[in-house]
Design a protein around this nucleic acid. Structure first.
Lengths: 167, 167
DNA sequence: CTTTATTTTCAATATTTATTGAAAATTAAA
DNA sequence: TTTAATTTTCAATAAATATTGAAAATAAAG
């Protein structure tokens, strides 16, 4: 397999995976591009490489900055901005986990805590509702705690421990 | 908070969370409805409860069956079909993990294995590409293994072990 | 068979989300 | 300042996705 081919396929695949991680397709593709680049890239280069418009490039770059998985680089004597990606896969995963926790898990936890506190008669329906929301809440809280640990952890410690679990 | 209000809010919130789990919104709402229902529900009832069309209800019910998180129930002497959800949150999470692993992680792993095997000169670009894809592949393989363990595990064993990690 | 209840399909439509590109805003240098 | 390079915004448009509803298919009952 040739380099250009491999590169295109990776960017494509990363686009799909990123999508299922809560990024959008183009955002994930810009990220993939920066991941494999040996040097920071400008908006211009990103537009060109992915054949996307200036506006699109700009918005997705900003979204990636907002997620905290790429950063600005300024080159002395140059006016335009360059961007580079966090290359450490572990740090990347932690950052994504941090954002998803904030964007997805925390909101549902809030709702589960609230609705579990429903008032009313002792009907079968209500009992079932409380039982289900309590179970969901417990599960979500455990997941949240695990995620929290993951986010704070150091790579080796975390994997080593998990490896032991998995034997 | 009143029951009807709590129910609506849960269904809404579940719709959003389900979405970030790879289901679509309506699919997740149908699922939420069946989760809190004390008895199996028919297509008719689901349509009514969520104010959606027959076609929409039918398609999303089939998608849930396909994901393996709801099942058909036939009532003796009745012609129409009823549906019920897996109520065990743990079993549900494992099933979702199983499907996502199949639908998302396996495809990217396949690509990573393939592109890591790229041929070419000893250029800096190529070296970087190989380095990045190797790291991603390792990470994805570890995640895959962990997911595999999760899917096969028993609830208590898994959480107890994780609890120890988190101390 | 024929009738009738029920489920499934799918073209048309609506809704949501992503993308473009040109104009406006910003920023740094002259 | 003014000029020019660069970034940002955003209304218009395109593309993708979800939803409807009626017609077709299926399957049980008479």
């Amino acid at each position: 397999m040739k380099y250009q081919e491999a590169k295109d396929e990776l960017i494509q695949a990363w686009g799909n995976l990123g999508y299922s991680w809560g990024l959008n397709k183009t955002m994930a593709q810009v990220h993939a591009l920066l991941m494999i680049s040996t040097r920071p890239m400008s908006t211009e280069e990103i537009m060109q490489e992915l054949s996307i418009s200036r506006g699109n490039a700009n918005m997705n770059i900003r979204a990636l900055l907002d997620w905290g998985i790429i950063e600005r680089v300024s080159v002395p004597g140059e006016r335009r901005e360059y961007f580079k990606s966090e290359k450490d896969v572990w740090a990347l995963a932690r950052q994504v986990a941090r954002e998803r926790r904030k964007r997805e898990l925390e909101p549902i936890l809030k709702v589960l805590r609230k609705v579990n506190d429903v008032s009313g008669d002792g009907s079968e329906e209500l009992k079932e509702f409380k039982r289900v929301t309590r179970d969901l809440k417990n599960f979500a809280e455990k997941s949240d705690g695990l995620l929290e640990t993951f986010i704070r952890s150091e790579e080796n410690w975390f994997w080593n421990t998990l490896m032991k679990i998995m034997k």
